[in-house]
Design a protein around this nucleic acid. Sequence first.
DNA 1: CAGATCAAGTGGACATTGTCTACTTAGGCA
DNA 2: TGCCTAAGTAGACAATGTCCACTTGATCTG
Lengths: 211, 211
Amino acid sequence: MTTPVPPRDTYRHGNLRHALLTVGIALARAGGPDAVILREATRQAGVVPNAAYRHFADRQALLEEVSARALAALALAIEAELARAPADADPATAARAGLRAVGTGYLRFAQAEPGLFRTAFAVPTSLDGPNAPPGVGERGLTPLQLLTTVLDDMVAAGVLPPERRPGAEFLAWSAVHGLATLVLDGPLRSLDQEQIAAITQQLLDMVERGL
Amino acid sequence: MTTPVPPRDTYRHGNLRHALLTVGIALARAGGPDAVILREATRQAGVVPNAAYRHFADRQALLEEVSARALAALALAIEAELARAPADADPATAARAGLRAVGTGYLRFAQAEPGLFRTAFAVPTSLDGPNAPPGVGERGLTPLQLLTTVLDDMVAAGVLPPERRPGAEFLAWSAVHGLATLVLDGPLRSLDQEQIAAITQQLLDMVERGL
DNA sequence: CAGATCAAGTGGACATTGTCTACTTAGGCA
DNA sequence: TGCCTAAGTAGACAATGTCCACTTGATCTG
């Protein structure tokens, strides 16, 4: 796995921070958060281990940045699914489709990029709050914000009673995130893609009905 | 953290395997799966690191055993909550209460024992299948089996339409497990116990309505 | 009851990782 | 032209998991 890199001829690397991030993402993609090894990253960047400390306080700092990128990738996947949602004339139908799109995008991403998905949630402080900036997609929204938007649309379309709106994002998120976990690391690990797609629909039915 | 232990006077430890398991559980309790350090366990058992290899193939094997015990603790917590459920005369009400009890017990345990909870799900192959035995509570059932039972009761009581029964355990589980994750490591980390209790009720409402 | 056997512990070693404290190099500004 | 300083390098340390060879002594046999 230690891809050897042609020795630099310049003393300066040029863009080590970016290089470490790129390698870090690749490592996370391939093996999840634990695979983000500082020394391995510097190795692949063609640099001595300590050089990393000029750009990141420690391994944790690198991991947090990588995690933020992973979260951004998730946001992008959700946005893509949202864009694919049928532009129904009926706002109620459209709003419901939006919620399903968010859930579907979330779960698709978890399956397609398990390493990144795990990495996105490996660092506790990377979902909201003060350090949100990097974890966003093209619209500049985090996954949570995308979900929030869709739920607001549902209230506006009269599909979700306003008194049930507060906290609804966490209920929907719990369901979808939980399923992702069970599918990735839990007892549903051995299901094939069709089965997962089926249970995803079932879950989204439950959420839609129950919210 | 390295509690020194009085030096043994016997060459044989007597019950090293059990001792390592006990220490391992304590470590997991205090710091989650990553805190289950093989060397630390042997240290606290008053034994040289390699001695562990007479009882466990490697660190992973120890972790798996500890994980199974953690799962058993979770099963116990659920059973306790189930036992506390009001023995209603109406089977429909009782069945619904059962489902809520399972969810409540699950989430209470996650809050009360975050280290054990994380450890229970740290090893992918410890929920079901061939290696189930150790992960059970007093009734000899795993958490999943407890949930399954409650759902069957709901069908029997006419609270859950039979056609919605297949796969229902994974839907309910997803929701509850997802919330536990969000509360433990996600954006709901900063909620106090009351707020968590409130959102738990909301989530269980959703599940009950949506299943 | 002497002695062999063999599971259970010990000792020492190795590679890997994160991280610390100097030291060196060279890009860009005075 | 020459210095300042950010960016890399060198070398070291402690910790971890794990391997191999050696020792110890409880138990089972002749």
